[in-house]
Amino acid sequence: MRGKKIPKKLILPLCALFWLLVWQFASMRIGEEILLVSPLAAGARFIELIAAPVFWLTAGFSLTRIMGGFLIALAVGGGLAALAYRFGAVTHLLSPLFSAVKSVPVASYTILCLIFLNTGSLALMIAFLMTLPIVYETLLEGLRQTDKRLLEMAKIFRISRLCRLRYIYAAQILPYLTSVIGVGVGIAWKSGVAAEVIGLPRGAIGTRLYEAKITLDMRSLFAWTVAVMLLCYLLEKLIRLLVKRAARVLERG
């Protein structure tokens, strides 16, 4: 006889609970909080952190720069993808540039940027540079997959550029945009925080992580990591929701 199925909405929380238990068990087994802090201790420190105004200032500092970089990459990458779709020569022109951008390590960029920029703008620039090629390539692929039969229809009926953009390209690009938000927000946070750890701008999450490392404050290190994960998750959901809503309003007309 087959057992009862677990309800779908319980699967993810149960899996998360399983890994928290593994973490708790590993921490208890090692028995040294300085090596591996327990999830309970990290959670308690996280609650302490969010109760303090400095947490929100720190999170706000990193958030505005990292998400600013990603949103600029979305705009610039989208614009370049549209240009490359329209003019084949742009694709060839940008190809070596983006190949180079993709292969250079975050650390090299960070050090280079520190020569030209102040540390406050570092995370914005790094998040922008790390996500720009992904945005460009994904959106260009989306545009290339546009239904040619719909474009023929638009040509026959002399449908305006605005309507083509609104009803044909927007619908086509939406799944690719959703996908690039999912991947891009994560990369922006990872690269942005890594840059902050190197550049140490005053009042940034990366700087807090660095301070936790040098003072061996593992509880804070884990708590800030949890904060980054939560911010990344919530912002990805928020941007996806906004994009979907905007697309729905545009398409329904």
Partner: peptide, 22 residues
């Protein structure tokens, strides 16, 4: 020109009204 193609060639997510008005 106007055309009814072999396939409908409609913008699936747009409304009936939007498809005609475009």
């Amino acid at each position: 020109l106007g055309a009814v193609f072999q396939e409908d060639r409609l913008c699936e997510r747009a409304s009936v009204g939007a498809n005609i008005r475009m």
